Computed example of a mutant assay.
Amino acid sequence: MDTASLEEWAASHPTHLKIYGDAMRHLSTFGPETRLRLYHEVTVPAGTEQRFGYLGCHDRTGLLRVVV
Rank of each mutant, 00 (worst) to 15 (best):
H13N: 15
E7S: 10
R51F: 06
G47N: 06
D59S: 10
L55Y: 10
F30T: 11
H58F: 07
T61M: 05
E49D: 15
H58Q: 10
T29M: 07
E49G: 05
E41I: 03
R35Y: 00
Q50R: 15
A46G: 06
M1D: 09
G53H: 10
A23F: 13
V42M: 07
F52M: 11
A23D: 02
E41C: 03
V67M: 13
S5R: 12
A11H: 07
P32F: 02
G56V: 01
D59T: 14
V68T: 13
R35H: 04
T3S: 14
V44Q: 04
V67L: 13
H26A: 15
T34K: 07
V44T: 08
W9P: 00
M24F: 03
A4S: 15
K18Q: 10
R60E: 14
G31W: 00
Q50S: 08
V44M: 09
G56Y: 01
A10C: 11
R35I: 03
G47Y: 00
L38Q: 04
H58N: 15
Y20I: 11
R35F: 00
E33I: 03
A11E: 12
E7W: 02
E8R: 12
P45F: 02
P45Y: 02
C57W: 03
D22M: 08
E8W: 07
F52H: 13
T29E: 07
P32R: 12
H58K: 13
P14V: 02
I19H: 08
T34N: 05
G53K: 06
Y54H: 07
G47M: 00
E49V: 01
G62I: 01
Q50K: 15
T48G: 06
D59L: 14
S28T: 03
H26Y: 06
W9D: 04
M1G: 14
P14R: 04
